[in-house]
Simulated scan of single mutants.
Amino acid sequence: MPSNPKSIHSQSRSYELTPSGDRYFDGLAEKFSRSLYQAPRGELRLAMLDYLLPEMLNLEWQCVLDVGGGLGQQAAWFAERGHRVTMTEPSADMLSYAKNWHRNVKTLPEEAITYLQAPLQRLTEQAPGPWSLITCHAVLEWLGDPQAALATLSDLLAPGGQLSLMVFNRDALRFSNAVKGNLEKALSDRLAGKGKRQRLTPISPVSHAEIEQWSADNGLVIDAVAGIRVFQDFLRHPPATPAEIETLLALEKKYCRHDPHWRLGRYLLYTLTKPEIVE
């Protein structure tokens, strides 16, 4: 990843949601990189995706549509494994960051990634496909209408295609608030962020029950589900040595797909498929 100088943006800066009620991240690329991907929680998230995606997807060097690709980690992961990737991202800052980083990644095949600055809602016009493999990781929770977003993703998916969907887990957020002593907040279910400042609490955290219902409404089948960061966020004493970090990763890998543990993952990772059309 590129170097990350201290952000010049003041903590008091105000950010506005889009007319659709979505949260974009112009001006926050450096904060994302520093806070999410150069910290233990981000490192664990990427390590778990590296472990889970080959298990949960049928990867056959497809063309991949990476929706809301952010800083470009997922696009790079697929491109390094031989896939042709179209990475979409509504934030000009995030897309620029990803392009600059990708240029310096020696393991990326030349021209393996195509970039498109566009919100999810416009992709049926600008990247209609249909696509045999779509990834949409940590996007729905930043949208004003995540239910409609899943319907759009279903429209983009080819019959027999796979959607790798990762969402911020509302149930885990409630549990985390209770553990921290925010009992009234947890009881009243006041969990969503406002999206007005630099804090990164999602504006639309999603529950597993909602994903089940929305998938069924759009004719999608849940083939697999896993929890990401099941244990890490609840540790009283974070791992302090490389050995402890490896032990935590092993623990996360062992139980990420076991009920009831996966249900409290900070993120829920799904493989959704669209059934083949039967003549």
Rank of each mutant, 00 (worst) to 15 (best):
P5L: 12
T18D: 01
V85R: 04
R34Q: 15
K185C: 14
C63E: 11
K196R: 14
L264Q: 11
Q126W: 12
D26Q: 02
A148N: 12
L116Y: 01
P2S: 09
E246G: 11
G27W: 05
S154G: 15
L268H: 08
H102D: 01
R199F: 15
W131E: 01
T247S: 14
L187C: 06
G27K: 01
D259Y: 14
R81P: 11
L116E: 03
G265P: 01
L269C: 10
R23S: 07
D50Y: 04
K106F: 05
G82V: 00
H237T: 15
P260S: 09
L71D: 07
Q213W: 05
S204K: 08
M1N: 06
S215F: 06
W61P: 01
G181V: 08
E16N: 13
Q232E: 14
I228M: 12
K185S: 13
L133V: 00
S91G: 08
G181P: 07
K253L: 11
E89C: 01
C256E: 04
V225N: 10
T201C: 07
P202R: 02
Q162L: 00
R174D: 02
A240W: 05
D93E: 13
R197M: 09
A79T: 00
D145I: 02
E212H: 06
S12L: 08
A172K: 02
L264K: 07
V221M: 13
N177F: 12
F32V: 15
P2I: 10
A216Y: 05
R34Y: 12
N58G: 02
C63H: 12
L157T: 06
T107Y: 04
L120A: 04
H102W: 08
L156P: 09
M48C: 06
I277V: 15
F78K: 00
G27Q: 03
E252R: 01
P5H: 09
G69N: 03
P90C: 04
M166R: 05
L235H: 03
L268G: 04
N58T: 05
S35I: 12
L52H: 13
Q11K: 15
Y51F: 15
R263H: 08
V179C: 09
K31L: 14
A148M: 08
S207T: 15
R174M: 05
G70V: 01
Q213C: 09
G72V: 04
N182T: 06
S215Q: 07
S207E: 10
G144L: 02
R23Q: 09
G195V: 02
D189Q: 15
E16I: 06
P130T: 07
D66L: 03
